[in-house]
Design a protein around this nucleic acid. Structure first.
Length: 576
DNA sequence: ATAGGGTTAG
């Protein structure tokens, strides 16, 4: 009896309760191991603790997402002859669902029936959610209908919410909205969670105004928005470039007595940075600090990236120093942004140095880090080093992404290697690459820049057979291709044709056609396009503008064009 | 005690 393992048998029930409670609130790396330790002791105790305690403990393991471990614990209990209950089976069903083992989950349902007990509503909800998680939304809906039809149980808001979530997941947001309306009319009233699912989905579908409408509806019905509602809306507005409204939303939520979280601010900070106004992002950070919130690694990374995108590497370095001072540990994303910043500033040696240094520190570069370096090497005018780097990254086990290939092919074409790029593109025979219109745009543009317009035409001609739809960008890069081949009519016709195909020419398209026509000594034609461009509210960029000034004598016998140009030239003088 | 909503950064 002096064996320590056996002595544990005398621990009281309340002893385990305390330890389970403690584990629930614990955080850290040893949480699961500690739970397993407690489990072993519980298993040893005679008589065994109640199934409720086992379920509580295993729930701790489930919450850390160690589903297989949780299932193995139930297996051990079974071996020890400890009987389980419906709760235990529901938890097991959930674990199998999370592990993408819906078949096993349904096997447990069969066991429940075999034991002669009715499954609970939770059993059904968990299974329906399992089908949704497995992208088997149609089956989830079928099961839901069967539940109603055979009156197996009365659905609750969670049942509806799960189906709403599934419908949104597969893009049937309007069906989800119908179901929500059904709930509103029924006695099973929706709560904020169901509204949030649809609001989030509408925002993802770029229907942020509909999301705002639903938000208003919800409030009218007396359902109070929570932080998740506001965060979704802030995100939705930011995705649409509506940062000002998003910032206003943040004030609104405070008026409602809800405190914005670090996430709320991070969404705004990131949006301001992406939009180019790091100043506003810094102001947002200040206001989050004033509210007692602590910026985290995501906040700092957004700022660093914002500065790097603007090429303000010194500012980015300052932010890095600041975060380190506050004990926030920079991660691979932080350093990838900085590497990008150095590359953008043509400081390739510093980029390479940092790339090496982080690896010495034990950080593992990922495909984005490698792609950033690759781009930097090409931009530094060293295509040979870039190619070598590209091969090296693959020997290190990095699989190039679509983005990597875009960088590679763009870099090769920029360095007069469009034939090599094309040969590589063909030899890869990758389905993913051949479905990417952006890559085609890069290659077509590359061919024309390399003086191989015939290759560009071949690429353009194969688009339709690949099921690819040309974009504004595609049509725009095709103009110089036709012009190089001397097919001026086809080039001009393309500008008409793209419009018929639902691609309105943009500023770049007009700049390109005007410049190409001027190069081919067609000032009258150029002027026609220029007029059309101006009438559509586009202004020439500086290179087009100076070409126009030099090559069109007495620009604009037409008074409107002349007045626009007089205005432009005077503005330019003022800027000088 | 078990089931549902969102995670923002390269």
């Amino acid at each position: 009896m002096n064996c320590p393992r056996l002595r544990l048998r005398y621990y009281s029930t309340s002893h385990f309760n305390q330890r389970i409670m403690h584990l629930k609130h614990a955080s850290g790396a040893t949480k699961v191991d500690d739970a397993l330790q407690v489990f072993d002791e519980m298993l040893q105790r005679q008589p065994p603790p109640s199934i409720i305690q086992f379920n509580q403990l295993i729930t701790v393991v489930v919450k850390t997402r160690h589903y297989s471990t949780a299932l193995s614990l139930y297996k051990q209990m079974k071996l020890m002859g400890i009987p389980t209950d419906l709760y235990a089976m529901n938890i097991s069903i959930n674990c199998h669902c999370r592990l993408n083992q819906v078949t096993y989950a349904f096997a447990i349902l069969a066991t429940i029936f075999k034991q002669g007990q009715p499954p609970s509503l939770t059993t059904y909800n968990t299974l329906i959610n399992g089908l949704v998680l497995a992208d088997r939304v149609v089956e989830a809906v079928e099961m839901f209908k069967k539940l109603l039809r055979e009156k197996l149980c009365e659905p609750n808001p969670i049942t509806f919410g799960t189906i709403i979530n599934g419908l949104c997941k597969v893009g049937y947001t309007s069906k989800a909205l119908e179901l929500l309306r059904f709930m509103e009319a029924s006695s099973c009233k929706p709560c904020v969670a169901q509204y949030n699912t649809i609001i989030g989905s509408l925002c993802k579908d770029k229907m942020v105004d509909d999301a705002l409408q639903l938000f208003a509806n919800m409030t009218e019905k007396g359902v109070l928005a929570d932080v998740i509602t506001y965060n979704s809306l802030v995100q939705g507005l930011c995705n649409f470039g509506r940062e000002t409204e998003a910032a206003k939303m943040l004030i609104d939520m405070e008026k409602e007595g809800l405190s914005p979280t670090v996430n709320t601010f991070n969404i705004l900070v990131n949006a301001f940075c992406k939009q180019g106004s790091v100043k506003d992002a810094e102001l947002a950070v200040q206001s989050m600090v004033r509210r007692g919130l602590h910026p985290d690694v995501i906040t700092y990374n957004a700022l660093i990236d914002g500065y790097c995108l603007r090429g303000e590497i010194d500012e980015a370095e300052n932010v890095l120093d600041g975060m380190v001072e506050r004990d926030i540990v920079p991660n691979i994303i932080t350093y990838s942004s900085l590497i990008n910043g150095y590359c953008k500033n043509k400081r390739i040696d510093e980029a390479r140095h940092l790339f090496q240094e982080i690896q010495d520190k034990g950080l593992i570069p990922n495909i984005i880090t490698y792609s950033t370096m690759l781009q930097g090497l090409f931009q530094s005018g060293n295509p040979a080093a870039a190619r070598e780097f590209f091969n090296e990254m693959q020997t290190k086990g990095q699989t190039p992404s679509l983005c990597t290939y875009r960088i590679l092919f763009y870099g090769m074409c920029k360095n007069s290697q469009c034939s090599d790029a094309l040969a590589l593109f063909r030899s890869l025979g990758s389905e993913e690459l051949m479905k990417d219109i952006v890559l085609y745009n890069i290659l077509i543009d590359g061919c024309s820049k390399c003086g191989k317009p015939n290759l560009g035409m071949d690429l353009f001609d194969e688009l339709s057979s690949k099921g690819l739809k040309p974009t504004v960008w595609t049509y725009t890069v095709m103009i110089p291709v036709y012009f190089q081949e001397g097919l001026l009519e086809k080039g001009k016709e393309l500008v008409r044709r793209m419009e018929e195909n639902g691609c309105l020419p943009d500023r770049v398209t007009y700049c390109v056609i005007v410049q190409e026509l001027l190069k081919k000594n067609e000032p009258r034609e150029a002027e026609n396009f220029l007029k059309e461009m101006l009438s559509r509210g586009f202004f020439p960029d500086s290179s087009t503008f100076s070409m126009v000034l030099h090559l069109i004598p007495n620009v604009g016998k037409d008074s409107r064009l002349r007045s626009i140009f007089q205005k432009l030239t005077s503005e330019e003088r003022m800027a000088e």
